[in-house]
Structures are given as C-alpha cells and as structure tokens.
C-alpha cells in the first residue's frame, strides 16, 4: 500500500476544506438553528411528541443525516471533479496509486469533513433541545458507514458529471427530496396508506431510521433491516467505483 500517497491526498483535501473552515462551520450551525426555529418551535409546539419522543429531539437524527448526505456527496464529488476539470488528475493517474488508494484518500477526506459537520449539528442541537443517545458507539459507527457510502456515491457523481452544475443535480434533485419524504422530520407511521407503503421504497427511510434507532432505541423500521439496506447501498457504490477504475470511465481515454 502507498500509505504516503493516500495521506498526501487526504491532507490536500483537508487543507482545501480548512481554507473555507469558517463558512464550512457557520453554514451547518445556522441551518440547524433555522430548522429548530421553524420545525422545532413553530410546528413542533403543535406536535410535541412522536412515538414518545420530544419532537425537537426526534428531528435531530434526521437533520444530521440530511447534512451528512449533502455534505458527503458535495465534498466527494467536488474533490474528484476539480482535478478532472483543471487537468491535475494527470498526476493522480500517473502516481503509483491503486484505485483503492486513490478512493481512500478522496473519500476518507470527504467523509471526515461530512462527519465533522454532522457532529457540529449534533452539538448545535443541544442548544435547543435535550438529546440523549442510547447507543453512542453504534451511532458513531453508523455515521461512519453512511458518510463512507455517500462519499463513495459522491465520488461516482464527481466522475460522471460533465460540469459543475451537474454536481448539484443529484443532491438537489434526488437526495434532498428523498430525505424530506423519507421521514427526516416525521415518522412514516403518521402517513396514510398507500403512502406509507410507497415510502418504504425510498431507501433514505432506512438510512434515517437506522440512525434514529441508535438515538432512541426505536424507529419505523427494524435496525437490522436499516443496517442491511445501508450496507447494500455501500456495496453497490463500491461496485460502480470498481467498474469505473477497471474501464477508466471518464478518467482515462
């Protein structure tokens, strides 16, 4: 393994994030606060509890996941798209790095950034509500798994995209709607049939509920199911990336 090479990419990416550290931190803090003001205070006052959980606390895992998805995809896709766009990818391709090593560098850095943002949201949430995490270790592991999965997905987007506007398309047009409709801010049990059953086809439901389970020990779907679904998505992304490097799709001519 070329650990130094992986570390070089990781450091480079983290350095890039560090240049925009303050906006990088201010954005999640402000958006979380806004969500709490709107959902927590304005709407939450009428809902008070879902499944015996205070509404304010209930939306914390959903908020963290929403940011984790978008941050992961954005950071990972931008990270690999930028060298493709500027042409500096030549150096990565000509370096003694295997596909796994290249992906580890980029995805590792993007996942680190995305998890930091999720944790900043977690801390900010404490300013508004009391959140108690029932399975802290599982919660962290789940955070790592989801961040890694969406960063892999973002890496694919970054390779696939032909321009910067396409980098935005997937998060805005697919992930955000699926997250909002996937029970980030409500329990899907609150939906009438057939909408509840239809919602079960939304993969994000499993991601959010798996994470919510680590907080409260209860969720709309069983933790095992959620974990299996997340893991399946993780493997699917790995498969696509394996294919990308094998064929050189949009990386090599």
């Amino acid at each position: 393994m070329n650990w130094r090479g992986i570390w070089a990419i990781y450091k480079f990416e983290m350095h890039r994030f560090a240049r925009t550290l303050w906006t990088g931190l201010a954005v999640p803090v402000i958006t979380t606060s806004l969500y709490f003001i709107v959902f927590g205070s304005a709407i939450g006052s009428r809902m008070s509890e879902i499944n015996g959980i205070d509404y304010g606390a209930f939306i914390v895992p959903g908020l963290m996941m929403l940011s984790l998805f978008t941050e992961s995809i954005f950071n990972a896709s931008f990270g690999i798209h930028m060298p493709r766009f500027t042409g500096t990818i030549y150096e990565i391709l000509s370096a003694p790095l295997s596909a796994i090593e290249t992906v580890l560098g980029y995805v590792g850095a993007a996942a680190s950034k995305a998890m930091s943002v999720a944790l900043v949201i977690f801390v900010t949430a404490h300013l508004f509500v009391d959140v108690h995490v029932e399975h802290p270790l599982l919660m962290l592991l789940y955070l790592v798994l989801v961040a890694a999965t969406f960063c892999l997905f973002g890496f694919i987007v970054g390779i696939w995209a032909k321009g910067f506007e396409q980098l935005q398309v997937i998060p805005l047009l697919i992930i955000t709607p699926l997250t909002f409709l996937g029970g980030a801010f409500y329990s899907i049990d609150m939906l009438k049939e057939p909408w509840r059953s239809i919602t079960l086809f939304n993969p994000v439901v499993y991601l959010i509920n798996g994470f919510r389970w680590t907080f409260f020990g209860t969720a709309d779907v069983a933790f095992g199911t959620a974990l299996a679904a997340t893991f399946a998505f993780f493997l699917a992304c790995l498969g696509v990336i394996w294919w990308i490097f094998r064929t050189g799709y949009r990386l090599k001519s």
Binding site: N2, R4, G5, W7, A8, I9, K11, F12, H15, R16, R19, T86, G87, T88, Y90, E91, I92, A95, P96, L97
Partner: peptide, 20 residues
C-alpha cells in the same frame, strides 16, 4: 495544470508524497 490556490512549496511536497 496545477492547483492554483496552493502555495508553491506545498504542491511540490504533495507530488513527492503522492509518489510514496
């Protein structure tokens, strides 16, 4: 083609480490 926002010395050190 280079990472235009990087300082000169970091980009050269980066290349060395990238190659292991």
């Amino acid at each position: 083609t280079m990472d235009v926002f990087e300082p000169l010395i970091s980009t050269v050190s980066f290349s060395r480490e990238l190659f292991g």
